[in-house]
Simulated scan of single mutants.
Amino acid sequence: MIARIWHGWTTLENEMAYQTILLNEVIPGIKAKKIPGFRKMEVMKRLVDGEIEFTTVMYFESLENIKSFTGDDYETAYVPDRARAVLKRFEKKAIHKELVEEISID
Rank of each mutant, 00 (worst) to 15 (best):
M58W: 01
A32R: 08
T70N: 14
A77Q: 00
D72M: 09
I2N: 06
R84V: 12
M58G: 15
Y78D: 08
Y74A: 03
I21N: 00
L23T: 04
F69M: 10
R89I: 00
I52D: 05
A3N: 09
T11R: 04
R84M: 09
A77F: 08
Q19Y: 11
K33G: 05
K40G: 09
T56N: 08
A83W: 05
L12W: 08
K93T: 03
S62C: 07
T20E: 08
L22S: 02
N24Y: 08
K34M: 08
T55I: 14
I66R: 02
I21Q: 01
L23H: 05
H7K: 04
I30K: 12
I27A: 02
W9R: 07
Y78G: 00
M16W: 10
I30Q: 05
E91F: 07
F38A: 08
T20A: 10
S62M: 10
V100P: 00
W9G: 03
E53I: 00
L63W: 11
A17I: 03
I105F: 14
N24L: 03
K93S: 11
D72T: 11
V100W: 11
I105T: 10
K31C: 07
L87C: 05
E61D: 15
V86H: 01
E75R: 15
K34V: 12
K34S: 09
A32C: 05
S104G: 04
K40S: 15
T70F: 13
F60I: 02
E91Q: 13
E15Y: 13
S68T: 07
V48L: 11
V100E: 13
T70V: 05
D106Q: 10
E102T: 07
F60V: 03
I35A: 13
L23F: 05
R39F: 03
D49I: 13
K97R: 14
V100C: 04
G71T: 12
K67F: 06
K93P: 00
N65P: 01
E64L: 13
K34W: 04
I66H: 06
L23M: 12
A3L: 15
T20V: 00
V57N: 02
E61Q: 13
L87W: 07
H7Y: 15
Y18T: 07
R82D: 01
L22Q: 02
I35T: 10
L47W: 05
T56Q: 09
A85M: 04
I27S: 02
E102K: 08
R89C: 02
K34D: 14
K33L: 15
M44H: 11
D72A: 12
F38G: 03
E98I: 12
F38S: 02
K33C: 04
K88N: 05
I30M: 13
F38P: 01
R82K: 14
M41D: 03
E91W: 04
E61F: 12
H7E: 13
V48I: 14
F69H: 05
M41W: 06
F60K: 02
Q19M: 12
V86W: 01
E102H: 09
P36M: 11
R4D: 00
Y59A: 02
